[in-house]
């Protein structure tokens, strides 16, 4: 029965997507451009959605504390920009720095979450929110020296958004671009996402990965068979945090700006509803569900904007997205969350 309900959610979204495509066609919008946009958005947001997977599989629920990882990524990118890292090499440096910070952040985050088994989601929301504001202090007083990042007047504190034009602006988007008629395929960016997905897939075939799956599915059995649950969960949480940090790097280079201060506050919710749309039911979520969910969610996301602009009013598109994101999460809580109690 639960399985049937899960498919209903996807069918509703699919129906909504078809409706949007018809509306877009009716409004005379270029369909090929919209499909292209949604593809780019899948690659842009895919890693953030993928980052939810390790924690889900470890039985730690959806990582609403995504901002923790995002902050690590922002820290890594800001540090890279401060040293003037440019191009693809600079972006790689930013990724490495982000991963480094994310390991530290993730470890502390895991220490907290290991005391909150079963209640990670609600705690994660507020841990994420608090870290966003804690980091606001850091951004406002950070000892960075690159004038392109600092407020022009006073010379202290980072700007709200840092332009990446001179650093690693769209390095992945512009890597190995293939033009097929009107259709533009950003092969480099796509490959990056697919590679990360594949690596995660391989990781879950290793001993540690299997242990994470096992902890998520049956903690009592794991305890009996001698798996260190806290250690395994720590690994999963660190992996989630690292992927989130990499995810925001991909997002920022595609977006063209590093958004600081309160920007990461609400980023966990769209990612969460994307993975839920993919059919995730807690533990044992597959990579395919991540990709499918991201694609469905981002397609609807891309379509709502222009459709609302031409048919309704511009500010409505954002509200429709808020309703969609939270509606999906609520639906999943009501119909899919029951499994965990059994």
């Amino acid at each position: 029965m639960i399985k049937g309900k899960q498919h209903t959610a996807q069918l509703i979204i699919l129906f909504f997507l078809v409706l949007m495509i018809i509306l877009a066609w009716y409004a005379g919008l270029s369909t090929s451009r919209l499909i292209n946009d949604s593809l780019i958005r899948v690659f842009m947001n895919g890693v953030l959605v993928l980052s939810l997977l390790p924690m889900l599989n470890a039985g730690a629920g959806i990582n609403y504390g995504l901002p923790v990882g995002i902050q690590a990524g922002l820290l890594g990118m800001c540090t890279a920009v401060n040293f003037g890292c440019q191009g693809l090499l600079g972006f790689t440096a930013a990724l490495l720095l982000s991963a480094f910070f994310a390991v530290l952040f993730g470890y502390v985050y895991a220490l907290i979450l290991n005391h909150l088994k079963g209640r990670e989601e609600i705690a994660g929301i507020f841990i994420g929110f608090s870290t966003v504001y804690l980091m606001c202090f850091f951004w406002a007083t950070a000892p960075y020296s690159n004038p392109a990042m600092l407020w022009p007047i006073g010379g202290q504190g980072l700007r709200l958004t840092i332009g990446l034009q001179d650093y690693f602006f769209k390095v992945l988007n512009h890597l190995w671009v293939i033009n097929i008629g009107h259709f533009i395929l950003p092969l480099g960016m796509g490959l990056f996402f697919v590679c990360l997905c594949f690596l995660t897939y391989l990781f879950f075939k290793t001993k540690l990965g299997t242990a994470i799956n096992a902890v998520g599915e049956n903690p009592a059995f794991c305890k009996l068979s001698g798996i260190n649950i806290d250690r395994t969960r720590t690994m999963a949480i660190i992996l989630s945090t690292v992927l989130a940090a990499l995810g925001i790097c991909v997002y920022a280079q595609s977006f063209g700006f590093i958004e600081l201060y309160e920007a990461p506050l609400m980023m966990a919710f769209p990612a969460a509803s994307a993975i839920l749309i993919g059919g995730s039911k807690g533990a044992s979520t597959s990579i395919l569900q991540v990709i499918l969910g991201t694609f469905l969610f981002q397609s609807v996301y891309v379509y709502t904007g222009p459709v609302a602009n031409t048919l309704l009013m511009p500010e409505v598109s954002e509200i429709v997205r808020v309703i969609m994101v939270n509606g999906i999460i609520l639906y999943a809580l009501i119909y899919a969350g029951r499994r965990e109690q059994a």
């Binding site: 989601e121 929301i125 309703i323 609520l330 109690q341």
Partner: peptide, 19 residues
């Protein structure tokens, strides 16, 4: 329907109602 997960449910419901 969501006993044990009330807080997160009310949190999301607040956002949804807002929208």
């Amino acid at each position: 329907r969501v006993k044990g997960r009330e807080m997160i449910t009310t949190f999301i419901m607040g956002f949804l109602a807002d929208g």
